[in-house]
């Protein structure tokens, strides 16, 4: 996995995690992977829907002590 960048939005509330992720994904190239760390409870559904709408691929996701990590491969 070509993780090029990690975005930490832990503690931030809706809509900030998605807004910041969008900004971050705009700075990487197609095929590169962005890692996002998030604690917002809605993130599971939000990130899945958001990635689908943009055609991005969530390569992997995991949860550790309330922190969700998404690995998003840019379309």
């Amino acid at each position: 996995m070509n993780i090029i960048k990690t975005l930490d939005v832990k503690g931030l509330a809706c809509p900030m995690p998605i807004v910041k992720t969008k900004k971050a994904i705009d700075t990487i190239a197609s095929g590169e992977v962005l890692e996002v760390l998030v604690t917002d409870k809605g993130a599971l559904n939000d990130f899945t829907a958001w990635a689908k709408a943009g055609g991005h691929n969530i390569v992997e996701q995991k949860e550790d002590a309330g922190v969700l990590s998404f690995f998003i491969e840019k379309a």
Binding site: P15, V19, K22, A53
Partner: peptide, 11 residues
């Protein structure tokens, strides 16, 4: 404004 900002993040 939350919906608007979310929509902008949705491109």
């Amino acid at each position: 404004y939350i919906i608007a900002n979310g929509a902008a993040a949705y491109d």
